[in-house]
Structures are given as structure tokens and as C-alpha cells.
């Protein structure tokens, strides 16, 4: 019993600590990368070439004063960032980093990830409501509507991949791609999944919830210090988990590019990290390069373009699989 509990705690720490470090360096990569896209240096003062900048930022947020607005609903106001942060950590226990390198290899892993990402709306909407202020409320409503809309097309895309792989288990989905990665037969779905992931994590060009010009900063206007830091960490961990999901669903997870001699000597988790970093860079690239969508355009893209196309492609995939007798198992 005690041994089992200790095993759980150690495995969770093995997941959570590298995750927090990678979130910290994600912010540094974002600032450096955007700096070089905009022909400036980015952070370069704290530490060697600015490498200690995220730690300094974290320390600053930790040392600041937590302000609780007097008209806020205090319980929900305190609870909202905790919900967001915990939900962003919960998804990682089913992500396979390599063959067998997964905390909990459950047989409905992809559904679990989908359920967790659909729960993460609650952190945002309770933050917006409990702040009792108009900008957070508008930001939270926008964000919730956006996330609910794009979840529909994400669901259809996941179903398409699951039908091709024949399992809801993430490791089996990766192993089903050992002949060919799903990015090649399902390329339009891959593009749509990545765009939906941008919308689901409230990133540019779909960052309507925190449109600086209109809503100051959206749902987290009233938060300071650790509350804000938890939202920030949760948001970036969500981006990492969406990148990980794209990698697992379409880019063959830990599998090497070709199963030949020099490439398959590189261990699986390294391949997984390389593929995940591609999407991290793509997230930052989209932020630096693209202007923000208008809200009605965002909704019409989600409901009138992505939903019919993903539904149609699902039917097309099923028809192909049945008519050529390619269904797995």
C-alpha cells in the first residue's frame, strides 16, 4: 500500500517537474523567437544569453502581492486558477513518451484527453464570472463559446484517427503508424486539427478572449501574482499537451522518421520531443505572423467550414476503409 502510494507520487513528480521547467523555457523560446522574427534581441540580460529569464519572471510573480477584488466571489476567484492549472497537468498521465514510457496506459486514453480538455473551460468561465467585472466576463464568455465550438470538430478529427488506428489507446494509435504516419493519408485533418488546437488553447490568431485592444487581457484581468502565474502555466501546459496530441495522432509519437540504422538508434522520447517542439515553434510562428480574427469570422470558420469538412472527411475515410477492406483488426 505504502509502496504503491510512493510509486504514484514519484511518477507524478517525474511528470510534473520537467513539465514546469519546459513551460518556463517555452516562454523564453517564445520571446526569443518572436524577437528574432521582429528583428530584435529578446531577453538577453538575466543569465547567459537570457537563459535565467523565466526563473526571474517566476520569482517576480511569486513575490508579488495577491490582490483579491472586494466585490469578487472569493471562493470561486481563488479556485479558478487552481482548476485551470490542475486540469492542464492531469492530461499528461496518459501521454506516451516512448514505448511503454507512460504513467497510465488506459484503453480510452484519447477520450480521457478530450474530456480533460473539455473540462478546462470551467477554469476560464468561473474566473470570468467570479471577478465581477465586465472585461473578464466578456473574455470568459467569448472563450467558452470558442472552446465549445472547436471541440466539435476536434472530436470528429479524433474519431477519424481512431477509426484508422482501431483503438482508443494512445500507444496503439502510435504503433498503428509504424508503416506510415497519419499525416500523409489524413493531411487535411492534420491541418484542421492544428488550427482547432490554436483555437482551443485561445492562441493567436484566435486569441479573442484576451484581445488586448478590446478586453485589456480577457478573463485574467483581475488576477495578480500567483493566480495569474497559475493561469499562465496552465495555458502554456495546455499548448504543450495539444502539441503532444498532434504528435501522437498524426506524426507517429515516438517512432523514428524512417526505421533505418542511424535514425532508429535515437531513443523514442527524443523523437517525441523533437516532433513536439515543431508544433511549439508553429504556435509561436502563428502568433508572430498572423493578425487576429474577427469574432464572427472565428465562429463561421468553426461551424461552417471545419465542422462540415471534418464530418465529410470522416465519412470519406470510413468509406475508403470499408471498400478496400483496410479496417484494422
Amino acid at each position: 500500500m505504502l509502496y504503491h502510494l510512493g510509486f504514484i507520487i514519484v511518477s507524478l513528480l517525474i511528470i510534473v517537474i520537467p513539465l514546469l521547467i519546459s513551460v518556463a523555457y517555452f516562454t523564453l523560446v517564445e520571446r526569443k523567437f518572436m524577437g528574432s522574427m521582429q528583428r530584435r534581441r529578446g531577453p538577453n540580460v538575466v543569465g547567459f544569453m537570457g537563459l535565467l529569464q523565466p526563473l526571474a519572471d517566476g520569482l517576480k510573480l511569486f513575490a508579488k502581492e495577491t490582490i483579491l477584488p472586494s466585490n469578487a466571489n472569493i471562493v470561486l476567484f481563488v479556485l479558478a486558477p487552481i482548476i485551470t492549472f490542475v486540469l492542464s497537468l492531469m492530461g499528461w498521465i496518459v501521454i506516451p513518451f516512448g514505448e511503454g514510457a507512460v504513467v497510465s496506459d488506459i484503453n480510452v486514453g484519447i477520450l480521457y484527453l478530450f474530456a480533460i480538455s473539455s473540462l478546462s473551460v470551467y477554469g476560464i468561465i468561473t474566473a470570468g464570472w467570479s471577478s465581477n467585472s465586465k472585461y473578464p466576463f466578456l473574455g470568459a464568455l467569448r472563450s467558452a463559446a470558442q472552446m465549445v465550438s472547436y471541440e466539435v470538430s476536434i472530436g470528429f478529427i479524433i474519431v477519424t484517427v481512431v477509426i484508422c488506428a482501431g483503438s482508443f489507446n494512445l500507444s496503439t494509435i502510435v504503433l498503428a503508424q509504424s508503416k506510415i504516419w497519419f499525416i500523409i493519408p489524413l493531411f487535411p485533418m492534420f491541418i484542421m486539427f492544428f488550427i482547432s488546437a490554436l483555437a482551443e488553447t485561445n492562441r493567436h490568431p484566435f486569441d479573442l478572449p484576451e484581445a488586448e485592444a478590446e478586453l485589456v487581457s480577457g478573463y485574467n484581468v483581475e488576477y495578480s501574482a500567483m493566480g495569474f502565474a497559475l493561469f499562465f502555466l496552465g495555458e502554456y501546459a495546455n499548448m504543450l499537451i495539444m502539441s503532444g496530441m498532434t504528435t501522437i495522432l498524426f506524426l507517429g509519437g515516438w517512432l523514428p522518421l524512417f526505421d533505418i540504422m542511424p535514425l532508429n538508434l535515437i531513443p523514442g522520447p527524443v523523437w517525441f520531443s523533437i516532433k513536439l517542439s515543431i508544433f511549439v515553434i508553429a504556435f509561436i510562428w502563428a502568433r508572430a505572423a498572423l493578425p487576429r480574427y474577427r469574432y464572427d469570422q472565428l465562429m463561421s470558420l468553426g461551424w461552417k467550414a471545419f465542422l462540415p469538412l471534418s464530418l465529410g472527411w470522416l465519412l470519406f475515410t470510413v468509406a475508403c476503409l470499408i471498400s478496400f477492406n483496410w479496417l484494422p483488426e
Binding site: N107, V108, L111, A115, S118, L141, E151
Partner: peptide, 21 residues
């Protein structure tokens, strides 16, 4: 496993959100 996950996705992730709205 399957029933509670669909329960969470459908009821908590979609219907209760609209309720809350």
C-alpha cells in the same frame, strides 16, 4: 471507462457549460 468519459464530455463539457452560460 467509456460511459463516464462520454458522460463527462457530453454533460459536463457541453450541456452544463450552456447551462452556466
Amino acid at each position: 471507462e467509456f460511459i463516464p468519459l462520454t458522460f463527462i464530455i457530453v454533460y459536463v463539457g457541453a450541456i452544463a457549460i450552456l447551462f452556466l452560460f
